[in-house]
Design a protein around this nucleic acid. Structure first.
Length: 199
DNA sequence: TAGGTGATCTTG
DNA sequence: AAGATCACCTAT
């Protein structure tokens, strides 16, 4: 068992640093009596009010994204396309609405529970290789909106760090509406890791 | 490659 | 009040 990351670690004013720092760490949930763990292999940084791809762009603050304006270390979970529950880590201090989207994990523990929730028989990469897929495998839904990430429900543990040589930076996925910000290389993933959502 | 899905946001 | 949009997934 790794050490649980403290909330203060997320209260960093550089969301790109946090997005890179989360790679290789262990995301854990204990939901409906099932504990699962996965290695974070893909993240994206969303940088507050000046990032056109970010839900908080242009000071937009609504019922959906209000947690982004709270201190770092809480879960921002929202329903995407009516079906998928997407999981973000809120970062930065109160009033600075940054967040990191977790896009994919490599299963480490609780594979049975993951397959069960995904209604899959075979253990293959489709279990957790996308932002809507791994949340389903982990039991994460909007019910857990705002959960502190040092809780017993959702938490992230330290693990050995990843060297920069093994990290790829690229444009974020699915943000074509964001004009020039769509090109920012704020998607990060582990090189040659088969659990990454797409290449 | 196309269609499903429903909360959220915007317009009138 | 109605319509458009959307940080995606699954199956053809």
């Amino acid at each position: 068992m790794g050490k649980v990351i403290e909330l203060s670690w997320y209260q960093n004013n550089n969301v790109v640093d946090v997005a890179i720092g989360l790679l290789g760490k262990h995301l854990c949930t204990n939901i409906n009596g099932k504990q699962v763990k996965g290695l974070i292999v893909e993240t994206e940084a969303y940088s507050g009010v000046n990032d056109k791809a970010c839900h908080a762009n242009n000071q937009r603050k609504t019922k959906r994204n209000r947690i982004m304006f709270e201190p770092g270390g809480h879960a921002y979970i929202y329903l995407c396309y009516g079906i998928h529950h997407l999981f973000n880590v809120v970062t930065n201090v109160i009033g600075k609405a940054d967040a990191v989207l977790i896009r994919a994990v490599e299963p480490l523990e609780g594979v049975e529970a993951m397959l069960d929730r995904r209604k899959m028989r075979k253990f293959e990469k489709q279990v957790t290789n996308g932002p809507g897929k791994f949340t389903q495998a982990f039991g994460i839904t909007t019910q857990y909106y705002g959960t502190a990430l040092d809780s017993k429900i959702i938490w992230i543990e330290e693990s050995k760090s990843i060297s920069e040589n093994n990290i790829i930076a690229a444009a974020r996925i699915g943000v074509g509406y964001a004009e020039e910000d769509a090109l920012k290389p704020w998607r990060f993933y582990l090189k040659e890791n088969k659990w990454v959502s797409r290449f």
